[in-house]
Design a protein around this nucleic acid. Structure first.
Length: 319
DNA sequence: CCAGGTCAAGGGAGT
DNA sequence: ACTCCCTTGACCTGG
């Protein structure tokens, strides 16, 4: 199936339309105190409600014609404290997840994950790495349950996440600890460029790719703040070249300065203020705008959101 | 029912 | 030392 760029736009986790009109949400959770009081059975009940609503979200995507969606990492609250198989509603949850894949397949939707910033495979602390491995494997397990063959079609996207002031050593640890992941997780993991100059650019990540084969998600917005001298096009082409078994993924967002000039430029805007360019790579574009699916629909139907600021303030930071 | 305070996790950065 | 930021704002309590 050949999709245009606009058909390859996706949104992350929350569907504002469904959340506001029908209370359909896929990230019910609880604080630690409640988990201690109510335990795994309550976690199971929330997870079941979440995956049931996930079906509704995927159906909505199908009806609207959106083909790209990031599932929430909060579908299974406190999952690092139990095995998914131990949930009392496991069988029903499995059936829901299988249904999700059926709908996704028939409408050609690509589903992905972006686990939280606590997944630091490059950490020098054993327990941190151990926790990350469990969390990442559980994300992969969900794709396995759904019935997906392991590939980067269902990317599990993380950052390297730490340098400790020594990038080469951090890359070494990342590559070593990568080998400890489940086989299916290894086949789905991808790395994303950071938004701080001291962290990992696309160029830095290319070394990781050369060593362990993890494709690079090119975050267009982050690149403005951590570019290693590459232009956007150069970085996009370099990142896209690392995807062998599935089309590349990019992340796209506009600076919040289009809406609030006094805020930190790195922050994301509600809507899309620039033309989205895949540089001919065929990349699927995850739009990280706070207005979620609404921002995509506006872009598709109306085009770029007009801004009263011709020159976004981030240009000052890049120079 | 609502506003406001609080909330697992790792690390970086600004104060 | 403290606070905020990031995956993703939502949970919980006191009024």
């Amino acid at each position: 199936m050949d999709l245009s760029v606009n058909q390859r736009l996706g949104y992350a986790c929350i569907n504002n339309t469904l959340a506001e009109t029908k209370d359909i949400i896929i990230n019910r959770g609880m604080i630690k105190k409640t988990f201690n009081e109510k335990g795994i059975d309550y976690a199971s009940e929330l997870a079941l409600l979440n995956v049931k609503d996930l079906i509704r979200v995927i159906e909505w995507n199908e009806n609207i014609g959106i083909h790209f969606y990031r599932m929430s990492s909060s579908m299974f609250p406190w999952s690092s404290h139990y095995d998914l198989k131990d949930l009392k509603d496991y069988d029903e949850i499995v059936n829901c997840l299988i249904t999700v894949k059926e709908i996704a397949d028939r409408s050609y939707q690509r589903l992905t994950f972006h686990p939280g910033p606590y997944n630091i495979l490059a950490s020098d602390k054993k327990y941190v790495v151990r926790n990350a491995i469990k969390d990442l494997n559980q994300h992969s397990e969900i794709f396995d349950i759904m019935g997906y063959e392991p590939s980067h079609w269902n990317k599990i996207n993380i950052h390297i996440g730490a340098t400790y002031g020594d990038k080469p050593s951090a890359i070494d640890r990342f590559c070593e600890n990568f080998l400890l992941l489940d086989e299916s997780t290894k086949k789905r993991l991808v790395v994303e460029n950071d938004d701080k100059p001291t962290m990992f650019s696309v160029k830095d990540l290319y070394e990781v790719y050369e060593r362990i084969g993890t494709p690079i998600t090119f975050d267009v917005h982050h690149h403005k703040y951590c570019h290693s001298g590459l232009t956007h096009k150069e970085a996009a082409l370099m990142a896209a070249s690392t995807w062998k078994d599935a089309p590349p993924c990019f992340h796209f967002s506009s600076t919040i300065n289009h809406e609030q000039p006094d805020k930190i430029a790195r922050a994301h805007a509600d809507y899309i203020y620039e033309e989205i360019n895949d540089y001919g790579t065929g990349a699927w574009i995850m739009v990280e705008a706070k207005s979620k699916e609404e921002s995509i629909l506006y872009y598709i139907n109306e085009g770029v959101m007009p801004s009263e600021y011709d020159e976004p303030l981030y240009d000052i930071l890049v120079s």
